[in-house]
Design a protein around this nucleic acid. Structure first.
Length: 950
DNA sequence: GCTGGACCTTA
DNA sequence: GTAAGGTCCAGCA
């Protein structure tokens, strides 16, 4: 280093914040209960700088009162920043006292930020021949760098890096450090609320700097830009210039660099040590004395050994194992490089958020916990198990939380009997009607506990269901919700048990401390989400839907899933054998016709054979990826001319049947129960419908003769039972008739007419008994088209009609049912005005694209606006029916069980002696679930299998 | 082993 | 034209 004098200017708040957040997972709290993390963090780094660099001149700069100028320019400036944490506010007076005792000058100017003070002082010092080092992690300072002014930047892993001109040039891809201002102005800085140019991030900003050099030059040449970018930037020129101003550090603060005042002197050791001892800093006292080359003479009453007299810090065992006091290097101790002086933009995790998660020891610990938990009115819980199948999953532990940031974890013994003993102790909690149970996807936990013969009673709050009602179009898994609403990234399950598949571990094999951290975090987060969603439910006016529909339905679904359905495996196996033969025969026929063997199931290979080799058509249609399209609609068009196509279609149909249903279903039989247990998803369909998976029992074939054989495999539990299928007749058309108040349609339903025939009769102007099959079929297509948001194009694709015939049919249709047209446009208008549509029960679907400039996108949103309330209202109604029927079956202690729901159909396993009662019960409840201006009609069928019941 | 596309099943 | 889930292939790792 040259003999040039060196000045160090410390950006106080940046280091205080960084220090505070570095200790966040293990805050330093002394015996008086003071949080001293920020003080310790700051002092550690200050001493570190002094020890390393031995500066001749040093000052610490603070902000005061914010930047009046910048706020005047832009009122949102730094408005994003959260309230300064309490631990920092209380730290500042202590730090000032220490600095005074150390004889280090504090530079602060009312109405200016530390950046401006440091900038001004560094320029003044430069003129007097000093080298200045700005001690800060904040990248904004890079604009101040000159030949004699450097950034002295703490880096991850400990130590510092010095940024001179070459480093800044490289880092920001600029030629002159002053261009950092343009760079920041372009990309903006969300932490300081510098808006930046719209659509410009780091990459684009660098590109613009390279190309135009400055904000001014870019804005003067926007005509060279293209497309959306051009529009956006041209519209935001003022914003660009404002952003640049906001990003500019001021160099004319009324402060004076007086070399004499800034000289680093010997501190008032006694005073400093007194303050440190008062704060209970032992290691730091040592460190301080060593730094200033004074004999370490620490009194015997304050041993420097941090193993004794360590302040009581309440955190998890894991967090307690973290860096000990004094050994902690502020910049090396925390893996979160993102921690700068803008902590509100740092994603929170268990690592940097204070929490108190404790595992509960057996015996007295459990007793104490029980006493505690029973005294609560609302508790969040989350079960940890050995797997995802609730029927076979064993409890590994249960996490509980009823206070934000705190929670307990009850590990379960592997031995089943011992586990049962433990859960028995919890029975009074779970079966307590007065304690609300909160959870994420409670259906799972309820099912797991049911296998331990535990019923979860009392009010329920499921955060996943809550969010589904708040915005059904989003995803609702806990990790996403935590990140969206709490700015918190939970520990991933993969971090614990590995990626799924090959070597995934069981939760059982994870160390207890990790189980605790993970499980209690989930409960804690879920509790926090609950507090968040509780208010939003009221705002969205969906509280009733939550309390009266989705939450009660959760228990109904859990029961249906646990029940499962009996499957005739032998029958499916024999079907499989027949199919296998037929498929093989078809294969041979196809290969012969094609002249070679190939994989018929590969659309790519099939397309090549049909259209390249055999040249069945002149201009084959291609898919969007450039392959030949071989979908059902295209092939069946060719089928009448080419036998091979007929065979291929049959091959397709049979293979699908075999692989998706006949061979797949038996593998889904749960060995434990001998039955098939589907999983109903309550939060995936945007309209409010359920969905079913593993296996999907809502798409079992019915249309073709061979397909519907699969339904014969669904049978009652034994010969004392019979299957009952109850389905709503035309529920969606009834709903649209009622909602639109279209009397012609309402009357047809009231008169019990066949609605499609009735429509055909009116549209084609023929007597009802003279309607042809084709006319009825076309009328049926239009009826459905209306529900889906009809267009002439879609209709002509769906029928044998031409585009103009289709258009004419639609026009006649609207003339027949005049109020339907009005209803449809009214729905679309409502969506445009409100951004959402809703069902009869107020279930909302938000349609963000309803005002899109893109006609295709907007058209899709408009069809949603029509369809969602209809499909969703039908879903609402059958949900009500399910809840009411379930409750009646429970109350009446019937042996009959509800097994399946297929959107407009319910399937029951009916105890034969109860059949007549149940038939009446089911029909009554379904038809009276919701009162419309149109009667609801339910068809019942019974049989020894699902096909026969139809 | 995972992912996207094509295809097919239901209401 | 609405709403879903499952299987297979093919391309990529």
């Amino acid at each position: 280093m040259s003999d040039q004098k060196r000045l160090f200017l410390v950006d106080a708040y940046a280091l205080i914040f960084r220090g505070y957040y570095a200790f966040i997972k293990n805050p330093r709290i002394n015996s008086k209960g003071e949080d001293t993390s920020a003080i310790m963090g700051f002092m550690n780094s200050l001493l570190d700088v002094i020890k390393r660099e031995r500066p001749d001149h040093l000052a610490v700069c603070f902000d005061k009162g914010g930047s009046a100028d910048r706020v005047e320019m832009f009122e949102a400036y730094k408005a994003n920043r959260d309230e300064t944490p309490e631990g920092i506010k209380t730290a500042v007076p202590h730090i000032c006292k220490i600095l005074e005792a150390m004889h280090i000058p504090i530079m602060v100017k009312e109405g200016y930020e530390a950046d401006d003070v440091i900038g001004t002082l560094s320029r003044q010092a430069e003129k007097e021949g000093y080298k200045t080092f700005m001690v800060t992690p904040d990248k904004d300072f890079a604009q101040l760098v000159t030949e004699n002014i450097f950034m002295y930047r703490p880096v991850f892993g400990g130590g510092y890096e010095t940024w001179g001109i070459p480093e800044v040039q490289k880092k920001f891809e600029v030629t002159d450090p002053m261009q950092v201002i343009d760079f920041l102005g372009m990309m903006g800085d969300s932490s300081d609320n510098i808006p930046g140019l719209p659509g410009v991030g780091e990459k684009t900003a660098k590109k613009f700097i390279a190309q135009y050099g400055s904000m001014e030059n870019l804005l003067a040449n926007t005509h060279e830009l293209k497309g959306k970018m051009k529009e956006k930037i041209e519209a935001a020129k003022d914003l660009g210039m404002l952003s640049k101003k906001l990003a500019t550090i001021m160099l004319d603060v009324p402060v004076t660099f007086n070399a004499k005042d800034f000289e680093l002197e010997q501190p008032d050791t006694e005073k400093v040590v007194a303050i440190f001892q008062d704060l209970e800093f032992r290691r730091l006292t040592d460190n301080f004395l060593k730094t200033f080359s004074v004999e370490a003479e620490v009194s015997a009453s304050n041993p420097s050994d941090n193993a004794t007299g360590k302040p009581e810090v309440k955190t998890t065992p894991k967090a307690q194992g973290a860096a000990g006091e004094g050994q902690f290097s502020l910049f090396g101790g925390d893996p979160s490089e993102a921690i700068e002086h803008t902590p509100e933009h740092v994603r929170k995790t268990a690592e940097n958020t204070s929490h108190f998660y404790q595992s509960v020891a057996p015996g007295i610990g459990t007793k104490l916990f029980l006493k505690n938990v029973m005294a609560q009115t609302s508790v969040c819980f989350d079960t940890e198990t050995t797997g995802l199948n609730p029927l076979t999953a064993e409890l590994v532990g249960i996490a509980f939380s009823w206070e934000v940031g705190k929670g307990f974890y009850l590990p379960f013994p592997e031995n089943r009997d011992e586990a049962q003993e433990l859960i028995e102790q919890l029975r009074p909690f779970f079966e307590n009607e007065a304690i609300e149970k909160v959870g994420q996807n409670l259906k799972y936990d309820i099912k797991v506990l049911a296998k331990y013969n535990i019923e979860v009673k009392g009010k329920l709050f499921d955060t996943m269901l809550a969010h589904y009602l708040i915005n059904a179009d989003m995803r609702h898994n806990m990790d996403v919700l935590a990140e969206t609403y709490l700015n918190y990234t939970p520990i991933s399950i993969e971090a614990l048990i590995g990626k799924k598949g090959k070597n995934q571990l069981s939760m059982r094999s994870v160390a207890l401390e990790k189980q605790t951290e993970y499980a209690v975090e989930d409960a804690d987060i879920t509790l926090q989400l609950k507090e968040h969603f509780q208010n939003e439910l009221g705002e969205a006016n969906t509280q009733k839907l939550f309390d009266d529909i989705e939450i009660p339905l959760l228990r109904v679904l859990a029961a249906m899933e646990l029940e499962g359905i009996n499957l005739d495996e032998t029958f499916l196996n024999s079907l499989s054998e027949q199919l296998d033969k037929d498929i093989k025969t078809l294969e041979t026929t196809i290969y012969t016709a094609a002249g070679e063997a190939f994989n018929i199931a590969s659309p790519k290979q099939l397309g090549d054979i049909l259209f390249d080799k055999m040249k069945l058509v002149d201009k084959p249609k291609k898919t969007k990826t450039g392959q030949y399209a071989t979908g059902e609609d295209i092939l069946s068009y060719l089928a009448k001319d080419h036998d091979i196509i007929q065979h291929i279609l049959e091959f397709r149909a049979l293979s699908k049947l075999k692989s998706t249903y006949i061979d797949a279903l038996p593998t889904q039989i749960e060995p434990l129960t001998g039955r098939v247990h589907t999983d109903y998803m309550q939060t995936v369909a945007a309209t409010g419908r359920l969905s079913s998976n593993n296996p999907n029992l809502q798409n079992i074939p019915i249309r073709t003769e061979r397909g519907r054989q699969v339904r014969k495999a669904f049978i009652p539990r034994n010969e004392d039972y019979i299957l009952l299928a109850a389905d709503y007749s035309q529920i969606e058309l009834r709903i649209i008739a009622a909602l639109s108040k279209e009397e012609n349609m309402i009357n047809a339903f009231k008169n019990g007419e066949d609605i499609h025939a009735s429509t055909a009769s009116k549209v084609f102007n023929v007597p009802l008994d003279e309607v042809t099959r084709e006319q009825r079929s076309n009328a049926k297509t239009v009826n459905f088209g209306i529900i889906y948001g009809v267009s002439a194009f879609g209709l002509s694709n769906q029928t044998d009609l031409s585009r103009s015939e289709a258009k004419e049919l639609i026009d006649t249709y609207y003339a027949t049912y005049p109020k339907l047209r009005g209803y449809i446009s009214q729905q679309v208008d409502f969506a445009r005005d409100n951004g959402y549509v809703q069902t009869v029960l107020g279930r909302r679907r938000y349609l963000k694209d309803i005002n899109s400039r893109n006609a295709v996108v907007r058209g899709a949103a408009e069809r949603n606006a029509v369809n969602a309330p209809i499909q969703g209202s039908a879903a609402d109604i059958i949900k009500i029916a399910m809840i009411n029927i379930y409750n009646k079956l429970q109350d009446g202690q019937y042996k009959t069980k509800m097994l399946l729901q297929v959107h407009d159909e319910l399937v029951f396993d009916v105890y034969k002696p109860e059949l007549e009662t149940i038939k009446t019960l089911v029909k009554t409840e379904m038809e009276n679930a919701y009162k419309l201006d149109v009667p609801l009609d339910v068809d019942l069928g019974t049989g020894a299998d699902w096909l026969e019941a139809h």
